[in-house]
């Protein structure tokens, strides 16, 4: 009995030392990882939102005011007077082999400005470079699916639908 107790104690001591070591390393790497993710999101915002890219000094991005259950995050683009100009959604939907995450910007006229696939590990078809013909459209009528990747295309379509739907509520 006593022997077992000592063995268990030794194992937990090892686990404790390893845990401490891991937390020390995590302390150093966590801020770097966070900064990198932030930078990636900022770059994607520049890519989908033309007005913000051109007026970086006067326009602001509001990151926290709106939260929806359907989307991962919402960024409101405001001009110098605080008027809402555009809304950018980060939406994810389940595709064929992975979860597709997209960033979609919607203008004040409820038209999609641009979209970019942030992450996907789909095995069939290249949805990252395919043009879904949605830029400047206000409905899904012209959605051009990627042939051969029906399920991935359905997920992308769902992302667009969610973004368009929510924009009526957010850009009031």
């Amino acid at each position: 009995m006593k022997k077992n107790l000592i063995t268990g104690l030794v194992l937990s001591v090892f686990a404790l030392i390893c845990g401490l070591l891991l937390s020390v390393v995590n302390m150093f790497t966590a801020p770097v990882i966070e900064a990198r993710t932030e930078e990636k999101i900022n770059n994607s915002i520049m890519e989908v939102c033309e007005v913000y890219k051109n007026n970086k000094d006067t326009y602001t991005i509001d990151k926290e005011s709106i939260k929806h259950d359907e989307v991962d995050s919402v960024y409101l683009v405001k001009d110098e007077n605080g008027e809402k100009v555009e809304v950018i959604y980060v939406v994810s939907a389940k595709g064929y082999a992975s979860t597709i995450q997209m960033m979609i910007s919607v203008t004040k006229e409820h038209k999609i400005e641009r979209s970019v696939v942030i992450s996907s590990a789909e095995t069939k078809g290249d949805i990252k470079t395919h043009d879904f013909m949605m830029d400047g459209k206000d409905s899904l009528a012209d959605f051009d699916k990627l042939s051969g990747s029906t399920i991935s295309s359905k997920a992308v379509r769902k992302c667009f639908y969610t973004a368009l739907d929510l924009s009526y509520e957010d850009l009031k």
Binding site: V10, F14, A15, C18, L21, I33
Partner: peptide, 30 residues
């Protein structure tokens, strides 16, 4: 002392080393 649980000890050590590598790689070689 560690004879009865040596495999568990080895795995704990290996797993933490791998996690360290993973964290460093995620931070500096994304």
């Amino acid at each position: 002392l560690i004879q009865p649980v040596r495999i568990a000890v080895y795995i704990v050590i290996i797993a933490s080393l791998v996690t360290i590598v993973e964290m460093i790689m995620q931070a500096y070689l994304p």
